[in-house]
Computed example of a mutant assay.
Amino acid sequence: MDTRRLPYLVDLARLGSMRAVADVTGTSTSVVSQQIAALAREVGATLVEPDGRRVRLTPAGRRLADHGIDLLAAIDAAVDDLDPAAEPAGTVRVAGFATAIRRSLMPVVAEFATTHPGVRLTFREHEPTEALGLLEADAVDLALVYAFDLAPSAVPIPPSAAVGEVLWEARWGLGVPDDGPVPAAATASTSAEVLAAYADRDWIGNSRNSADEDVLRLLGSVAGFEPRLTHEADSLDLVDDLVVAGLGVGLLPHDRPVRPGVRVLDLPDPPVRLRCRPVTRRGRSSWPPLAAVLRALR
């Protein structure tokens, strides 16, 4: 089997049409069809079948595509390992959420100017689902994603991806108006009691990620109410503004300065922790420039 044909099948499984595969690979549909047909002859199995005016993978095609992800990752790793002692050089494309870029990546750029001048980092600010989609499409080399410990399933990991160890974690609390005496909820012993004190308020979720909403609904259910998610914001600064204006309450990190008029109440039990992890395509983490970045992040 000529493994150079496998990417066409893997991309067809991911993209769903030969036209899309041709666009991604810069070829034509006839070339894609020929490569997959040749692959079918080599493995002695039917890999695609007609589906109206398009084609779809057969069960054998799906199985081979799944194996293809691992095979291609192993090939990438083998090539990367040929010269592990070489000075890292190249561009590492990163997609990640704003806090991770500021906290984890920007210091690496300054460090690498001295330690690895041949490595260049480019950043794209994206929420986890978006960043993982770019990683799956091979548009970036590294995704920095987050998940709350109370909502770990909010970010599905693609089968072609490998998740690294937690880089850092941050405690989150409930952002409420700071408009007078310390509220009684500030001394509550459970997170559910804190939320219950604001059950009649409007709530603020995240416009690009469901994790905040999942955490609020989980804690709200323990407290016996359904949070009324009225607003959605991607910017933490905008969450501050909405809270100060009395338009809602929502989750905010403890380790971030807030604007005057906002108080972040502790969520003590269970605590709400956001954890940041690096995600790469399987087999790519040994590529010297990327390996250097991952070492610096750790």
Rank of each mutant, 00 (worst) to 15 (best):
G173T: 03
A161Q: 04
G261Y: 11
N206F: 12
Y146G: 14
P7A: 13
I204G: 07
A197I: 02
G246L: 08
L290W: 07
T27W: 06
L15N: 10
T25M: 12
V249C: 03
S30M: 13
V79F: 07
L238N: 06
A13D: 14
S30L: 15
V264L: 07
T29E: 15
R256K: 12
A139L: 13
E127K: 00
A199I: 02
V21I: 08
S207L: 10
P257L: 11
V264D: 00
P177D: 01
L39I: 05
E136V: 05
L174V: 04
R93Q: 14
L274V: 11
V155P: 03
A38F: 09
S28I: 07
A86W: 00
V43C: 13
D70K: 02
A192E: 03
I101C: 09
M106Y: 12
D138K: 01
Y146Q: 09
V94G: 07
S28Y: 12
V55Q: 13
V10S: 13
L219H: 03
R103M: 14
R5H: 14
D83S: 13
L242I: 11
A89V: 02
A170H: 11
A199F: 01
D2T: 00
E130Q: 12
H126A: 14
L9C: 11
Y198G: 04
L121N: 07
R56N: 11
S189G: 14
P128K: 00
V215Q: 09
A13E: 14
L39Q: 04
V94N: 06
A292G: 09
A89N: 08
L229S: 03
A170E: 15
A184H: 10
H67D: 15
H231F: 07
A77S: 11
A131C: 05
L238R: 11
D214C: 08
V163Y: 05
R263K: 09
D83M: 10
T129M: 10
A85Q: 10
P260A: 14
V79R: 11
